[in-house]
Amino acid sequence: MTNIALAIHGGCGTLPKAEMTDAEWAQARADLAASLRAGWAILAKGGTAVDAVEAAVRVMEDSPHFNAGHGSAFNADGEHELDVSIMDGATLAAGALCGVKRIKNPVSAAKALMRRGDPLLLAGAAGDAFADHEGLDMVENEYFSTERRRKNLSSMKIRELVGTASEASEAEKHGTVGAVARDVQGHLAAATSTGGYTNKPVGRVGDSPIIGAGTYARDGRCAVSGTGKGEYFIRYCVGHEIASLIAYKGLSLKQATDTALAELTAHKIGAGLVAIDADGAIVAPYNSEGMYRGWVTPDGLVHVATHGDVEMAGQA
């Protein structure tokens, strides 16, 4: 089992510490740990990396503390439009949905679409209809709402009116969840799920459902899930860029991810990611105030963090 590996992020839109109570921070870290345990349980039993990242992301989609599933950001019309993708590094198979409104766990719909094989990406009502046909759990759009996200929307609309939208914190704007894994067979997988950014234009699609941008996995290279300003992840093809730097320039995972993140930092773009290489090495770089993140070390210890300090949360 020493070769299995798992890492997650809950978005680089981490709130300043003062904006949540100690109890709320403890719950957010507990949800990160629960996500890791869900994914690790599958890997430890010899399960696939694809199933592990799905399980890990589902836990975060169910938590109100992250901008995916329940707790997703509102668009400009006060609705939720969710984006998601999953990728199998062994076959390069992938499934993605964008702008869906009624799927309780979008990552499971993405996996179902990947298993179907064609098409790779469905948008809007077509994605909801596919999930419904597959027998997945469906909800009303209001299910995704939380009071904190309502306050974020009000704040961003005020900022838009007074011309300070560009000064908003990552916590006000963005947030994404994602997971990367290596299974006992050496196969890699990645998954990313998001509600997008607060007050986004209706119909806006970010990088999370774009293979090669916010999500990428390829055996022998790496698996990547990103978080931040999606338009730049798309422009720089961040996931694929990291894999290419490893394959063609011979960079280590850390060198490749640092190089890719530096390009976004140069544009003053708040960003972060988690990634795993072919040997199971893990990195979780970010350039914002914090990033919800976690990983399990080969000895089965769960590590979680929101800001600078990393804490151990017991055995997986």
Rank of each mutant, 00 (worst) to 15 (best):
K45F: 08
I103H: 07
K173I: 15
T146H: 04
Q315M: 09
L15V: 10
R235K: 14
A260P: 04
G99I: 12
C237K: 10
V304N: 03
E134P: 03
G127R: 08
G270N: 03
A68Y: 07
L15P: 10
I234E: 05
R29K: 12
G71H: 05
A96F: 04
S252L: 01
I4W: 00
G178R: 02
P201F: 13
G250C: 12
I246P: 06
G10C: 04
P16W: 02
N199R: 03
L113H: 04
H133I: 07
G290Y: 01
P209T: 10
A275L: 09
G71E: 06
G272N: 11
R159E: 11
L301P: 02
V238E: 06
V50H: 10
G308D: 10
A247E: 11
P201E: 04
N141E: 07
A223G: 13
G89V: 08
R29Y: 00
A217C: 14
K151N: 12
A171Q: 09
S145M: 14
H303I: 03
V139Q: 03
Y232G: 10
T176Q: 08
N75E: 02
I103M: 11
G117K: 08
T164A: 15
N75I: 07
D31M: 05
G228C: 05
D137H: 12
M138I: 14
A49M: 12
L43W: 01
I86S: 05
C12N: 03
A313P: 09
A190H: 01
G178H: 06
A38G: 14
G124M: 08
D62M: 03
H70V: 12
